[in-house]
């Protein structure tokens, strides 16, 4: 699988890099754009960014590994992010995540994002989603679900299973 960035995106990024007094400062914007396009940041993407910005791959890789929301593997089509910060934890976020994991055959004891073998779901804990009043909350892709119950979770799973 060869790595190639569409020429339109590349042109946009090249233009973006000119906005910074030092090209290196554009690293994060590049990575966001590449993740937006590819869904995750591959090693090829790291090397591509480094070449574009006149850096060494390790400089970019440091950034990618520092931020948990830069993904290094392809994620599932439906991404379930369960908030586990205090309010949600008290309101049953852990049970909720266990519910997702068990239904999808994932390991509840494992840390970090887990993706189902069929590539349909990724489940992970995240820190505060800033909706403590409606705990527990879950982000499903870009949608925030509030006061999530087991029944709501089922709906998410059903919808995710049929999605193309």
């Amino acid at each position: 699988m060869s790595f190639s960035v569409p020429s339109k995106l590349e042109a946009e990024l090249d233009e973006l890099a000119t906005h910074y007094p030092q090209k290196r400062s554009a690293s994060l914007m590049f990575l966001h754009a590449l993740q937006e396009h590819f869904g995750f940041i591959s090693r090829d993407a790291v090397e591509w960014t480094a070449t574009k910005l006149g850096l060494q791959p390790i400089n970019v890789y440091e950034l990618v590994t520092f931020y948990p929301m830069f993904r290094q593997e392809k994620l599932g089509r439906t991404q379930v992010r369960v908030c586990r910060t205090l309010s949600c934890a008290l309101a049953g976020a852990y049970e909720l995540r266990d519910h997702f994991c068990k239904n999808l055959g994932l390991d509840t004891a494992k840390h970090g994002p887990q993706t189902t073998p069929d590539g349909k779901f990724t489940v992970e804990f995240v820190e505060c989603l800033a909706s403590c009043g409606s705990a527990p909350v879950v982000m499903v892709n870009d949608d925030l679900l509030e006061k999530v119950t087991a029944a709501d979770a089922e709906k998410v799973l059903t919808r995710g299973r049929v999605t193309e």
Binding site: Q56, I58, E62, T65, P68
Partner: peptide, 18 residues
């Protein structure tokens, strides 16, 4: 030769090469 860096975060910080 800017070959080394620190990857990961917090107590998982690790010296690594690309």
């Amino acid at each position: 030769d800017d070959a080394l860096g620190i990857v990961n975060r917090g107590s998982y910080n690790t010296i690594a090469a690309w």
